[in-house]
Amino acid sequence: MHELSICGAIADIATRRAGERRVESVHVRIGQLRQVVPDTLTYCWELVVADSELDGAVLDVEQVPARIECRDCGRTGEIGDVPVFACHVCNSVEVSVIAGEEFVITALDLAAV
């Protein structure tokens, strides 16, 4: 799976943004549609940061449920475990994904200098 690549990318950004300061936590926001297994991600994170400047940094994963908005009736709703991209109210397939595709580093907790 691609969790290793993801952790590598997160570590690169965190290292660059932290400059000289020690990173205590890295906060990421990952949507349900990004196919990331949180346990695998945290496991890979440990592997990737071991013996690096980020060793000891905590990866804090905020998962965002997938939500769709119907372009016909305007209703919004969560996509459940069965991924049906149709309006739960009027069955229209004219829906937009309004949450669940997030894939960002939101913040770093940096040690005081």
Binding site: D39, D55, Q63
Partner: peptide, 8 residues
């Protein structure tokens, strides 16, 4: 929202 925390 759900959080998963990897502890160092």
């Amino acid at each position: 929202t759900a959080h998963d925390h990897a502890h160092a």
